[in-house]
């Protein structure tokens, strides 16, 4: 129960001051994001790419774009997990992400500081199941 020692309507408490600390909108953390998979703080400045969209440690991403990369028009905001690696004709590795909540796919170039072990594990995933891979080789 709030204390009412003064008559009502005669409140001289000042209203709460506006915050002048800007965390995300345009402040000192505007260029950072926190990974949805491993909670690592990631800077948007990445070596080798100007369009970092995934965590360099666990390669997870967030479903924020709709059709055009960078449009931020998706309402899903689901976590996207890396499902596959492919190479462009010029030899660049690309990661394919799949949204865990809606199943949408997207692709992004790897960055210079992406975890090499995670990338190679992802690339070796089709060959991990030796049964499936050897059956494929026998059928050739």
């Amino acid at each position: 129960m709030p204390r009412r020692t003064r008559p009502r309507g005669h409140d001289d408490r000042r209203s709460q001051r506006r915050k002048d600390v800007l965390h995300e909108a345009s402040g000192h953390r505007a260029n950072d994001f926190r990974c949805a998979g491993c909670r690592l703080d990631v800077s948007l400045h990445a070596p080798g790419t100007a369009h970092r969209n995934h965590c360099p440690q666990c390669l997870a991403s967030l479903h924020v774009d709709r059709r055009i990369p960078g449009d931020r028009a998706s309402e899903c905001r689901g976590r996207m997990e890396a499902v596959a690696v492919f190479t462009r004709p010029d030899g660049e590795w690309m990661i394919v992400h799949q949204c865990l909540s809606c199943g949408e796919l997207s692709s992004n170039r790897i960055a210079g500081d992406d975890n090499a072990l995670a990338l190679v594990r992802l690339a070796l995933r089709p060959l991990h199941d030796t049964d499936r891979a050897s059956r494929t080789l026998i059928n050739l």
């Binding site: 492919f86 190479t87 660049e92 590795w93 790897i110 990338l119 190679v120 891979a133």
Partner: peptide, 14 residues
């Protein structure tokens, strides 16, 4: 299928 699976390993970025 097999060619696509091993294609990234033929051109590793590191």
């Amino acid at each position: 299928l097999m060619r696509m699976a091993v294609r990234p390993l033929a051109q590793p970025p590191f």
